[in-house]
Design a protein around this nucleic acid. Structure first.
Lengths: 340, 340
DNA sequence: GTGTCATTCTAACACGTATGAAAAACGTCT
DNA sequence: AGACGTTTTTCATACGTGTTAGAATGACAC
């Protein structure tokens, strides 16, 4: 199955010109007479000529496409972020190549190598929950390859970063629970190596620091796969339920954790919020239809995607090496509903 | 910001060979002595040589990437399908480029032109709800460009198609409502020009044909943007509520329609299923957490993505023009919960 | 008739890779 | 040594585009 497109050569032969003249005419060079320009342009549109992007890429050493690595497309936060990424990228004539890690470190390394070998011009990445070793990213970064982190950032690598105020989001959510009169507030977060987990737990801690009840270590649970696997959430919840005094509220620190925690509580016949209140990070657009409607910390995912992409394109198109890097911090939004 | 990779030329110069020798050595040609092969291979791995995929694409006239066009990534069905697409594509060394139409015909045409001009090797598409004119697809198809339709297919174009048994899915759902004793069952579907809308309404009609109550035209509502816009769903529901006798059940024929219909009913203070029962197509993984848990028709989205991709790659890699086309029809799954 | 300049076009090459054809290099046989 | 065959390497070219340098043409002035 082949599919032939018109080339500059076809035009040249058809009009009895050289390819370079045609090329120049199409690029509206001043060294071509208006008459020939018109001739070429007319014929080109007539046969629906489009310059071959691959040949262009080879010539210009840039592919005009960027890579995106996220944990899961089928996650409201990421799909909304990708929406933002795509809107900016397409607007600037860039293509988007998406890869998923499913929270696996190995997949992240493989997918990164794959994308890098496919000659993308830059990378947007929200690292997987399994990422502890950063060699693969550092190697790329040191070769001057443009990278922008969003959401789950990596502090050790100096480049643009876009995230929300995770500390504040977690602080607000926890404070909300405190104000509602909950005394024993537990937290389930992603793995400790993720920046967002640490920051959100810090916010949770800070909010509790003002109360008389200091949070015991037993109230803080980490989840290896950021809640992707129901089983690990079940285990964390079970452990929390065995504590005395039993927690009367849970704060979940990521999208999948929140919905899966709700699933587990329901399956155990625990009523929300009568038995245990639930507040969590989530970008699902179904939260108000849930039973009960969930109080959530919402992130401006679309906007994050847009900003991250703008920064990346800026990095790619910069002539001189960029030394000053931005660290954009957006605000979260606490949506209070019946679950707390 | 540039980023230089090693080329075959670098190796040739370093070893005092010609580029063609190096090229042949790397491809393990029999006409190269074992000694030089070893020499080249060793040096290549040492400097971490990877062939430039763009140069390869130019040479071989294939980019090893496929395009995907869907309405919305942030839609459970599509994100699951993309998951399936990505798994097969990556496995076969193909890249995936995703574009969204947001149910707009203009965006579909633009995005199609864009992808086609980016020299993708083939296209997977689930047409937008606004698609009435097929010229853009026909033009591409007639030039022999590989296309596979999934989910929202187009009958007029002869190529591989992957879908579910929409008729049966709708029939089962409607029959379920009938068996539960509902008498006045309304339906809200996507626009009439979409194959899935027509088939699902036909299934609904067939189920009702066995009952005494024939469905009046007033019970059948179409939604221009397949439920993407809340407003149009609100309008459809309002009209249904004015009918006498008032419908006691609604069947919604697509993902967004289902959740948005639920949203509208809730906002109007209508209880599900006491006042009106609700059953719909949906692939959301939160349905059992909703209030009430929704009875849904679920599609094997991941599998659809996989199969469609396999067929597309088969089409792309076929030497001779394919004349026999497959029409894969998968089964839906009715998940019965409290909403009906 | 010649020199200067501006205009308009072309030839040749580059990007990185692969390949058919030609040419070396080498060994073997007469 | 010459003819021949086999193995190994190089040359030339192509893919489609853009660009540097140079060539052809004509106009004008001297």
């Amino acid at each position: 199955m082949k599919f032939e497109a018109a080339t500059i050569k076809d035009i040249a032969i058809a009009l009895g010109l050289s390819t370079s003249t045609v090329s120049r005419a199409l690029r509206d060079s001043h060294e071509i007479s208006i008459a020939t320009k018109q001739l070429v342009l007319e014929y080109a549109t007539r046969i629906n000529y489009h310059p071959n992007p691959i040949a262009l890429s080879l010539k210009e050493k840039r592919s005009r496409s960027i890579g995106v690595i996220v944990a899961e497309i089928a996650n409201s936060f990421f799909s909304q972020a990708i929406n933002g990424i795509e809107s900016v990228a397409k607007d600037k004539g860039y293509n988007v190549m998406i890869s998923q890690t499913h929270e696996s470190f190995d997949k992240e390394v493989m997918t990164l190598q794959y994308l890098a070998s496919r000659s993308i011009d830059g990378l947007l990445i929200s690292v997987s929950s399994g990422t502890e070793n950063l060699d693969h990213l550092k190697a790329l970064h040191e070769r001057g390859f443009p990278i922008v982190f969003f959401d789950r950032i990596v502090e050790e690598i100096q480049t643009h970063k876009v995230m929300v105020d995770n500390f504040r989001g977690a602080y607000d959510a926890t404070l909300h629970l405190i104000n509602k009169g909950y005394k024993h507030i537990a937290v389930i977060a992603g793995p400790e190596n993720l920046s967002i987990s640490r920051e959100r737990i810090a916010g949770y801690r800070e909010a509790l620091a003002h109360t008389r009840v200091k949070p015991g270590k037993a109230l803080i649970k980490y989840s290896r796969y950021a809640g992707l696997q129901l089983q690990e959430v079940e285990q964390a919840v079970s452990q929390l339920l065995k504590l005395r005094p039993r927690p009367d509220a849970i704060f979940t620190a990521s999208d999948k954790l929140t919905t899966n925690c709700m699933r587990v509580l329901k399956s155990k016949g625990i009523r929300i919020p009568q038995d245990i209140a639930l507040v969590g990070f989530s970008n699902s657009d179904l939260i108000e239809l849930l039973h009960p409607p969930l109080t959530v910390v919402r992130q401006p995912a679309f906007e994050m995607g847009q900003i991250a992409t703008q920064l990346l394109l800026q990095l790619i198109e910069s002539k001189k090496p960029v030394k000053e890097f931005e660290r954009k911090i957006l605000n979260t939004n606490l949506i209070i509903q019946a679950s707390s």
